[in-house]
């Protein structure tokens, strides 16, 4: 490890409580902590993925509800990845990360839902294609 850093915290291990943490990072922890997180994340992900694949090809639940169920499973799995793989928590040391994530999600929802919404209305208001063709000179 490089010593080219005069960060005084290098010599001080009692003051870790309110420090910030970047996503994917943790306060100094043993390797076993990371392995446990990885195992939990993998376990939950496998359950959710298998559930999604099984649901898609079955009629266990009310059929028109299957797409919604798949989306719910996908969002749940994204949450699992965020918590166990990216180490996003609700703790005070993660405020910045969560705020950035919240803004990112806002933009994503505006782009996706806004596009679908606007384009579906445009489609409805559009003149049928054959009439449009007749108007061409």
């Amino acid at each position: 490890m490089s010593t080219s850093d005069s960060d005084p915290r290098l010599y001080e291990n009692a003051l870790e409580q309110t420090e910030d943490h970047a996503p994917g990072d943790e306060p100094p922890e043993e390797g076993s902590h990371w392995v446990r997180n990885a195992n939990l994340g993998l376990g939950f992900s496998i359950v959710l993925t298998v559930a999604a694949f099984l649901l898609a090809g079955s009629d266990v639940i009310y059929e028109p509800a299957i797409p919604v169920a798949l989306i719910v499973l996908a969002i749940a799995q994204m949450g699992v990845h965020l918590v166990f793989f990216l180490h996003i928590t609700t703790g005070p040391d993660n405020t910045n990360n969560v705020l950035a994530l919240a803004f990112g999600l806002l933009v994503v929802f505006v782009v996706v839902i806004g596009s679908v919404w606007i384009m579906s209305h445009l489609n409805q208001n559009m003149m049928p294609m054959d009439q449009l063709m007749k108007m061409q000179p």
Binding site: D7, D20, H21, A22, P23, D25, N96, N97
Partner: peptide
């Protein structure tokens, strides 16, 4: 903040 936090956080912004 320390370099480690700044680097990770900056990359988080890029990922978003």
């Amino acid at each position: 903040a320390s370099k480690r936090i700044i680097v990770g956080y900056g990359f988080w912004i890029f990922l978003l």
